[in-house]
Design a protein around this nucleic acid. Structure first.
Lengths: 177, 177
DNA sequence: AGATCTTTTGCAACCAGTTGCAATTAGTTG
DNA sequence: CAACTAATTGCAACTGGTTGCAAAAGATCT
């Protein structure tokens, strides 16, 4: 049930409507917990029903827009949740299954997926580097910024690792193609 | 639909019954695509219905044991799948959501989850290192072994990164506790 | 033989993410 | 003003992983 808490987090930053949330999500909490707008609407409904959030109808815009804001009970629920503990998300990656299959099938078509992934990781890496330059280069950082930078660095390392892994795996399987 | 292919892969290595598979799974493909025995039974049923696998009743053991083996159509389906391409699995991690919340709530209780995760990553790291010593140290490796070593190295790096990340985040948030 | 324990198989309900589409309302244009 | 488009909200069905539990059948014990 992390989506609800991600939403509470986003609404605590600024109150907003479902669509606003859905948009902001992509560039904020949704980075760590992606969600579609349908999921978001469904969850907002549940949060309201649970009394963690309240909505007020909004005129002067299209559709029947509602603005949501967090109630004290919602903030409390978020605090409780933050203090809890989860196991790390399970690894579950089709590419790695493919690599295992390759060993059996003697068929180097995994290269397709490897190349695709390599390209994506390189792209992601480039994006992260751009963000690093834009937001964190050559300037003093406060605590919150340092934390965000830490997250970015972790992402950078991860993408670099993955790209490196793809390259090495490609080198290995393409020897006998 | 990767579980079905993970199963085909496992069955191609050795035919076996549902339970045998479920046991082997934990130490093989299931590492990259975990599954419970209920999932496995359900999926074996579907695979059989789809004509990719056939089962033969097995006497001389408890329960109504069935042994499954892959049919040519199954092998074909696996080959086709291996040649396909998937997007990398989406990142979805409650810990990172918690860290974002922490910035808002000024409440350093994320430390709970961070410490828990740190311990798990360190444990995992130790396990991987043991495997590295046992299986890959100081010996020549053939192609399949090199590939497996590559996977292990990737896992090692990942765990090391994660542990490092947890440590740094802890240092950061515990300053003002 | 009957009770019960273990192995093996499996059903059913649930939960959460995904996909496709529809309904409502407001601005915009011909 | 009618038709159309865009923004906003939302339903419904599907898929796949999770959980809890139960049925079948041989093994074991008394």
């Amino acid at each position: 049930m992390s989506l609800s808490h991600a939403l509470l987090n986003a609404l605590l930053e600024y109150p907003g409507s479902g669509l606003e949330l859905a948009r902001r999500f992509d560039r904020s909490v949704g980075f760590f917990w992606p969600a579609t707008h349908q999921q978001i609407y469904r969850e907002l409904g549940r949060l309201e029903e649970a009394g963690l959030v309240k909505s007020t109808a909004q005129d002067g815009s299209r559709g029947r827009k509602k603005t949501y804001q967090v109630l004290p009970a919602g903030r409390q629920a978020l605090e409780t949740w933050v203090a809890q503990v989860d196991d790390p998300p399970a690894l579950r990656d089709a590419l790695l299954v493919r690599l295992r299959c390759e060993a059996l099938l003697q068929n180097n078509s995994v290269a397709n997926d490897l190349k695709h992934r390599l390209a994506q990781h390189q792209q992601q890496l480039a994006d992260y580097r751009a963000i690093e330059q834009r937001d964190f280069a050559d300037r003093p950082l406060n605590r919150a910024q340092t934390l965000r930078y830490l997250l970015l660095q972790s992402g950078l390392k991860h993408e670099a690792n993955q790209a490196e892994f793809c390259k090495r795996a490609l080198a290995l399987i393409e020897v006998d193609s």
